[in-house]
Computed example of a mutant assay.
Amino acid sequence: MAIKVHGSPNSTATLRVVAALHEKEIDFEFVTVDMRSGAHKTPQYLALNPFGQVPALEDGDIILFESRAITKYIASAYESQETPLLNKDKKQLADLAIWSEVEAHQFDPVGSKLAWELFYKGLFGMQTDAAAVEENEAKLVKVLDVYEARLAQSKYLAGDSFTLADLHHLPALHYLSGTKVKSLFDERPHVSAWCKDILARPSWEKALALQKQG
């Protein structure tokens, strides 16, 4: 039975999962969840994700939700296919565990708030909260200083190979790269090189192509 991804092409969490599937070159069916019509709150969808959020993934009789849990499942269940995404070396496995948590708890909360203020609010005709931008820019500076030091030691966050720790950053990096805070990434040479590298991966380009379909 083919893998099904239920989600929205404009959802950062959905794009994270789709990128992981493309890294593994796994065929899947994409099922669009029309959130504007409330499709994510129907009983049918809540059976897949009880929180009524996207995405959800079906792999046969296995049902998953929460994008990072899904990518970890994909990387593990299809470990032998294409890009490894997980480290086997003990030291690099520890690094992967650390930097995956850093993305989820240090980078993403700040990056998501800035993307909301500087990108999404414009789409919805809403006014940017300058104070929120200033507050989160200051937080992002501190995070990126840590990243710069880390990436001076290795090409990627968990070592010299691309892993989930890097992939999980792609959605926020993509949207932030079109805003004024791009300068914060550009002025840090190792962070800048890392961003250009991972944003240029074919898997991410294929994930973004979802937004041009239909």
Rank of each mutant, 00 (worst) to 15 (best):
E82V: 12
V133S: 05
F107D: 00
F119A: 14
G111Y: 00
D108G: 02
A94C: 05
L151Q: 00
Y120M: 15
V141I: 12
L86T: 05
L151Y: 01
W99F: 02
S100I: 05
K91E: 12
W116E: 07
L118E: 08
Q81F: 10
L96R: 11
A77F: 12
E135V: 08
S100P: 04
A132R: 02
L96F: 12
F124H: 04
L118G: 07
A104E: 09
F124R: 04
E135Q: 12
E117L: 03
A104M: 13
M126D: 06
G125A: 05
D108I: 01
N136T: 10
A132C: 09
Q127I: 11
L123A: 12
F119W: 14
K91F: 13
D145S: 10
A77S: 15
K139H: 04
G125Q: 08
L86K: 07
R150W: 00
D95T: 06
Y78I: 06
V102C: 05
V102S: 00
A115L: 08
N87Y: 13
S112T: 14
V102E: 00
L96M: 10
T128S: 03
A97D: 08
Q81L: 14
K139T: 06
Q92E: 15
F119C: 10
E137N: 03
N136Y: 08
A131I: 14
Q92C: 05
L86H: 05
D89P: 01
A104K: 12
K121T: 07
E103N: 07
Y120T: 15
L86I: 11
A94F: 10
A130I: 12
A115E: 09
D145T: 13
W99D: 01
E137Q: 11
K88W: 08
L86A: 02
V146A: 15
D129T: 14
L118V: 07
R150I: 01
L96V: 07
V141R: 02
E82T: 13
D129R: 12
